[in-house]
């Protein structure tokens, strides 16, 4: 496994006139509702502990008001926490002075916004080159970088347009090119695709995954859409009312939800399309008589199609040519049944 790039430790954020006093109450065990009623302070985030690995996509998911946008803004300190640490490459960002902070935002982090937040008075090319221009690089180098990334996101030919002349999807491609042109390791994406039409959103997700295959950035992605979260996430963090309900590998959360809140969330999705063979396969234990060979990353939906609905079949699972497991179609069908924490163990 790769190194931990961003680590959030014991993070609290309290909104109000006197957060430090309120923090004392929280440390003494006061809950969110009492704090609001008796002291008029809002507990935005409570005791967040998340490790984000280099080269992975960490998705933070939650409904509106769950504190996810507040959380991502702590990583580049657009918002300062009331308590806790934010470690990036092992350094506590909260110890940085203004110059160090600016240096970090210029070189080590970039951000993509829900509402694009492009400069309306600059051309697409100038927008894409915003980060190197802020760093004061030479005009030629700026243009080259901007041009390269615009081509990479499929916007060649639109260099001299202005943002308002482009559609939403194209504007967000500019936003993406702008973030990539900063050449930073860490990319923060705040509901980056939420404002787009479903089809365009899906295109953008594919584009991001394709870019990620080559670039291996540390991406922190905020969304309220579970399908999007499951499609992109290597590591999924589910937030509710400012605390982490569950975090882990998305397939694992889907198969083992630990909270009714998450069960509600996952009950609506098409499990066959999201779950992968690797999550339901068993170890190779001298089985023989395989109906065929499948890839570990195939979705169950593909497999159902392949098996033509015959639940007696059994497949050999391979990854990069090696046998890694066996998939029984009956196990597959069982995995499609949503679990409920309440009756887990009692019926089965």
């Amino acid at each position: 496994m790769s190194d931990i790039k961003v680590s959030i430790q014991g993070l609290y954020k309290i909104f109000g006139d006197n957060p430090d006093t309120a923090m004392q109450h929280v440390a003494d065990g006061m809950d969110k509702a009492t704090l609001l009623d008796e002291h008029g302070h809002v507990l935005g985030l409570q005791d967040i502990n998340v490790d984000m690995r280099a080269g992975e996509v960490t998705v933070i998911m939650g409904l509106s008001g769950s504190g996810k946008s507040t959380l991502i803004r702590h990583i580049n300190r657009l918002i300062d926490p009331t308590a806790g640490k934010v470690l990036i490459d092992g350094e506590n960002v909260l110890d940085y002075d203004a110059a160090q902070l600016r240096e970090m935002r210029q070189r080590r982090m970039s951000m993509v916004f829900q509402k694009f937040a492009l400069l309306p008075h600059r051309t697409v090319l100038q927008n894409a080159g915003m980060s190197p221009r802020i760093r004061g690089e030479e005009a030629e180098a700026i243009e080259k970088a901007a041009q390269k990334w615009l081509e990479r996101v499929g916007l060649a030919g639109f260099e001299d347009s202005y943002p308002h002349q482009l559609s939403g999807g194209m504007q967000q491609r500019v936003g993406l090119a702008r973030a990539l042109a900063s050449d930073s390791d860490i990319m923060l994406m705040d509901e980056a695709f939420s404002a787009l039409d479903p089809l365009i959103r899906s295109d953008m997700q594919d584009l991001l995954l394709e870019l990620q295959k080559d670039l291996h950035k540390t991406i922190i992605f905020i969304t309220h859409d579970l399908d999007e979260a499951l499609k992109l996430a290597d590591h999924l963090v589910i937030l509710k009312d400012g605390y982490v309900v569950q975090q882990g590998e998305p397939q694992h959360i889907l198969l083992n939800p630990n909270d009714p809140y998450i069960e509600d969330f996952v009950s609506d999705i098409n499990r066959a399309r999201v779950l992968r063979v690797r999550s339901v396969m068993k170890p190779v234990n001298g089985y023989a008589d395989f109906a065929g060979v499948v890839d570990a990353d195939d979705t169950l939906e593909n497999l159902i199609e392949l098996s033509e609905g015959d639940t007696t079949r059994r497949y050999l699972v391979q990854r990069d040519g090696d046998d890694v497991g066996v998939l029984d179609m009956k196990a597959l069908v069982r995995a499609l049944v949503p679990q409920h924490t309440a009756d887990r163990g009692s019926i089965r």
């Binding site: 935002r105 210029q106 951000m111 916004f113 509402k115 702008r178 900063s182």
Partner: peptide
């Protein structure tokens, strides 16, 4: 949002 973007990319 634009101001936030300017901050996020480290403008002086």
């Amino acid at each position: 949002d634009v101001i936030e973007a300017a901050d996020a990319f480290g403008m002086t």
